[in-house]
Simulated assay, not measured.
Amino acid sequence: MAAFHRRRKQDSHARIVDAATENFCDRGYLTVSVEDIAASAGVSRMTFYRHFRGKADLAAFLFKTAAATAMPVYASITTVDYTQRRDVTDWITTIFEADRKESRLLKVFVQASVDDGDFTPRAQQFIRDLISRLGTAIPAFAVDPDKPGERRRWLEAWLLLYEILDQSNHAALASGVAGDPLMIEILADRFLGFVEAG
């Protein structure tokens, strides 16, 4: 009996996540309500609130899931020669392509960050985690933000990765100049400059 209830709870969780993803991507984060998600998932509001504190909590869960899926793509630079321009350009191109495939979900995260003040720190934490991950294989990223002598270098790493991810997001959303093919070349130059200076 307990296994049945556990499976039923997992099923309702998955239905809520699927319904939210579909609704958010089709109609936008701001226009979708908890009631819309619950109705689409075929669950009651009470069941929704057993799984999530609200719409923002659900968006945070979607971000965490997307970030976990994206991390291997972003960290893949550690598996190639990160000092070679071609490898770095290919890596950044792969990031841009991956974000294009997820452009609808990226738009949801942009809207959620406007609506929920707690959402942006989650995205910033992702960059912190990425610096740590890259630091295991690339000496220039092996920096500790809590050590005064390394703080500036860590901030430079943070800004570099933020710029790559931000421009990739803009390109995926067809926003600004990020779609210009030269953008990848410029970002590759900045990455190589950072690595060489480290």
Results as ranks from 00 to 15, higher is better:
122 R>S: 12
7 R>F: 04
45 R>I: 14
126 F>D: 09
83 T>N: 14
177 V>N: 15
104 R>T: 01
115 D>N: 11
51 H>Y: 07
88 V>S: 03
88 V>I: 09
79 T>G: 13
11 D>R: 12
101 K>D: 08
171 A>V: 04
150 E>F: 08
130 L>V: 01
56 A>S: 15
130 L>R: 11
8 R>N: 14
184 I>F: 00
169 N>G: 10
129 D>F: 02
5 H>T: 08
144 D>S: 13
119 F>W: 11
70 A>H: 15
179 G>C: 04
148 P>H: 06
56 A>T: 13
50 R>L: 14
19 A>G: 09
170 H>A: 11
198 G>T: 10
116 D>E: 12
173 L>E: 09
45 R>K: 13
55 K>V: 10
176 G>E: 06
27 R>H: 14
170 H>E: 12
195 V>M: 03
126 F>Y: 15
109 F>D: 04
71 M>A: 07
155 L>A: 10
71 M>L: 14
26 D>C: 11
3 A>K: 07
118 D>F: 07
61 F>T: 09
111 Q>L: 06
76 S>F: 10
56 A>W: 13
66 A>H: 00
193 G>I: 13
145 P>W: 13
55 K>R: 12
119 F>V: 06
2 A>T: 13
93 T>N: 09
99 D>K: 14
69 T>P: 02
120 T>E: 12
129 D>C: 12
62 L>N: 00
60 A>E: 00
165 L>Y: 06
85 R>K: 14
162 Y>W: 05
101 K>S: 04
20 A>V: 08
112 A>W: 10
2 A>F: 03
29 Y>W: 05
128 R>E: 01
63 F>Q: 09
71 M>H: 09
117 G>K: 08
18 D>I: 12
40 S>I: 02
155 L>C: 09
45 R>N: 14
18 D>H: 11
54 G>Q: 02
113 S>M: 06
95 I>Y: 04
140 A>N: 06
42 G>Y: 04
159 L>D: 14
169 N>Y: 09
174 A>K: 14
39 A>C: 01
78 T>S: 02
71 M>K: 10
127 I>A: 04
114 V>K: 06
57 D>L: 07
63 F>E: 05
96 F>N: 00
78 T>G: 06
68 A>R: 13
74 Y>K: 14
57 D>G: 01
58 L>A: 09
12 S>I: 07
169 N>R: 15
5 H>P: 07
58 L>I: 02
161 L>T: 03
114 V>P: 01
137 A>N: 10
123 A>I: 00
85 R>W: 08
149 G>L: 11
175 S>P: 02
49 Y>Q: 11
